[in-house]
């Protein structure tokens, strides 16, 4: 048994998936509850581009042995590829709990949680500058709050806004179709370290330095405890903040459009 298993693992490593799967299947016939074999068959399914089957197989392996961090780690990756982010995050966390220094598990957790910037941080800063966490309209020159009316999806679906700047988010991947259509129809500017779904439908994409990796700043943990970000690497790209400041400066060079005092001439 173990000899056959070792041979299969060797074949797997050599990339010979067909022969390898055959050996695994035979092994599984002998012992249908062989967790390692179920797990590796799952890995093969994943490599063949069938993450749903991979999830089913590795789940069976996990049901037999819940304490193997590698199972959880690979299950997380298959869940992520098949689009189940909450499960992916949950299994990454389990893997990390079992093996705290498992780099792959941390990486998979990061991937599962990707697609959002520091949402809590945005809440915190919006509250202290404008009183409200989100759903704010500044159209009257001061902040007003009405979720369901001024929140992003509602604005986009109604087609209220003339242009959109997207930072730390990928609405093109998650928002309802009419909202995405409005992003596509109107000028959309994306600031992101990676090319996102939204980038592909935007007029302009700025590649920016990823915060925490090559851009400094503060991240607010979900309990609103602030953490300093110290960049480990240098990036050839500007940070989100620098790009925004340049956009603001460019806009300010244009003549202002504050309402002028009434001239006394009747409006015709």
């Amino acid at each position: 048994m173990s000899q056959a298993f070792n041979r299969a693992v060797q074949l797997h490593r050599a990339g010979n998936l067909d022969q390898d799967e055959l050996v695994y299947r035979q092994l599984l016939d002998d012992n249908p509850n062989h967790a390692d074999v179920l797990h590796l068959l799952g890995v093969i399914a994943h490599q063949r581009g069938n993450p749903a089957r991979a999830v089913a197989l590795i789940r069976r392996a996990v049901a037999i042995d819940d304490t193997n961090p590698i199972y959880h780690c690979n299950l997380a990756e298959s869940c992520r590829v098949s689009g189940d982010m909450p499960e992916a995050a949950a299994h990454s966390r389990k893997a990390i709990r079992l093996l705290p220094h498992h780099a792959d598990a941390h990486n998979h957790l990061g991937l599962a949680l990707q697609g959002h910037g520091n949402v809590t941080g945005a809440d915190v800063v919006m509250r202290y500058t404008l009183s409200y966490p989100f759903g704010i309209s500044m159209t009257r020159g001061y902040p007003r709050f009405n979720p369901g009316e001024y929140s992003t999806i509602d604005l986009l679906v109604r087609g209220d806004n003339d242009a959109t700047i997207v930072i730390g988010a990928d609405p093109g991947a998650t928002m309802p179709k009419p909202a995405i259509e409005h992003l596509r129809r109107t000028p959309t500017i994306v600031l992101d370290p990676k090319v996102t779904h939204t980038s592909r439908l935007s007029r302009v994409h700025f590649t920016t330095a990823p915060a925490g990796i090559s851009a400094p700043g503060t991240a607010y943990r979900m309990d609103e405890v602030p953490l300093p970000l110290r960049p480990a690497l240098k990036s050839p790209y500007l940070s989100d903040e620098e790009v925004l400041k340049k956009i603001v400066a460019a806009v300010q060079r244009r003549p202002g459009w504050y309402p002028k005092a009434h001239s006394g001439t009747p409006v015709t």
Binding site: T129, G141, Y142
Partner: peptide
């Protein structure tokens, strides 16, 4: 009381 956005002021409440 609203604080209106203006050339001198950032908006707020």
């Amino acid at each position: 009381r609203p604080i209106y956005h203006s050339p001198q002021c950032r908006a707020g409440l």
